[in-house]
Simulated scan of single mutants.
Amino acid sequence: MRIATTCTGPNVFAFCLALLAFFKLNAQAPEPPLPVEMLFGNDQFYFQVVIKKKFSPDSKFGFFSVATYSASYNQKIPQNSITIPAQFSYSLGKGFGIMAGMEINSVAGFSPIVGPQHNYTSKKVLAVTVASLFLNEDLDFKLFGLYEYKPPLNEKWTWYNRLQFIYNHNLKEGIHNRSYLYLRSGLKRKSLAFGLGANLDQIGPNKIFADNYGLFARWDFN
C-alpha cells in the first residue's frame, strides 16, 4: 500500500467546509445538525466532523461522511492520520440503503467504495452501520458503526454517550489493517456537548495497540 502525501490537516477543514456550504445552500427544510468534535487527549489531538444529509427533504438520495484527523503533539508527521469518506446513498426503506463513493486516508490513499448501510434515528438514539468494500488492489473490507444514546436528565441537560468503531480487513491477504473503538460520555445542553473520551486503536497485521484519553467538546451546527 502507498502513503498518501496530500492528506493534511488544512485539507480536512477545506473539504468539510465545502460540504457544509453545499448542503447549506441546497437545504430547503430543517435538517439534522452537523456535529463537529475535538478531543484533547493525553497523546494526540483528534478532530471529527459528521455530515449526514438528504439532497432534499423527500429525496431517497443522501450523503454521509465521518471525516477524522489525528495529530501527535510532538509534531511527528508520520504519526498523524486522516480519513475522509464520501458516501452517496439510496434509501431502500425502513432504514436500509445502498451506498457508493470514495475514501481517502493517509495509508492507502484513494479508493472507490460500495456497500450496504442502515440508519436509525429517534430523540434518544442514533445508530448508523455501514459496510464498505474497497475496490482497490488489496480488496479491503471495512465495517463502521456509530451509536449514540442521549437520555434527558432534566428539561435543559442530556446525558450524551457515543460508541464508534471500525474494523478494516485486507481480504486479498487475509490480514488486519486497522480497527478502533472510540467512546464518549458527558453532558449536552442545546448544541454543546462535553465530557470524557477514549480512543482505542489497533493498527496493522500485528494489531499494535495505541490509546488516547482526554476531554472532548462538540458543537452541533444547524
Rank of each mutant, 00 (worst) to 15 (best):
L192C: 00
S106W: 01
G62R: 05
G101L: 05
V66P: 02
T5P: 03
F194H: 04
R189N: 11
F15V: 07
F165H: 13
P33N: 10
I104A: 03
G204R: 05
G109D: 03
A217V: 08
L17H: 09
F165W: 14
Q28D: 08
A193D: 02
S65V: 01
F23N: 08
L200G: 01
K94G: 10
K207V: 09
L192D: 10
E137F: 08
L143P: 12
D201S: 09
P32K: 13
A21D: 14
K188W: 12
F40W: 06
P151D: 00
A67N: 02
V12D: 06
R178Q: 13
N11T: 07
T121Y: 15
N168A: 09
L181P: 11
S185R: 11
S56K: 04
Q75K: 15
I175K: 15
G97Y: 06
D211I: 11
N206S: 02
V12L: 15
T158Y: 12
R184M: 11
N212C: 14
I84L: 08
Y182Q: 10
N168W: 11
F63H: 04
Y46W: 08
P30Q: 02
R178Y: 15
N80M: 12
F209S: 10
A18C: 07
A86C: 02
I104M: 10
P78Y: 12
T83N: 15
I175Y: 15
A100E: 06
G101K: 01
E148C: 08
A21N: 15
A27Y: 05
T158G: 04
K190R: 12
D58V: 11
K94R: 14
V130G: 03
K52E: 06
S70N: 12
G97H: 12
R178I: 05
V128T: 13
C7A: 14
C16W: 01
L187W: 01
P33L: 03
I203E: 10
I3A: 11
Q75W: 13
R2E: 14
F110R: 01
F194P: 04
V12R: 08
I208W: 14
F63D: 02
L139Y: 13
G174K: 01
T6A: 11
V107A: 12
M99I: 09
K54S: 11
S72M: 09
I82C: 04
K207E: 03
P205V: 00
Y90M: 00
Y167T: 10
G186I: 04
P151N: 08
L34V: 15
A100C: 04
V128G: 08
L39K: 12
F63I: 01
K60L: 05
K94E: 14
R184Y: 13
S111L: 06
L196A: 15
D138Y: 15
F141M: 02
E103M: 10
R184H: 15
K94Y: 15
P35R: 09
F63M: 07
V128W: 07
Y147E: 00
L171Y: 07
T158K: 02
I113E: 00
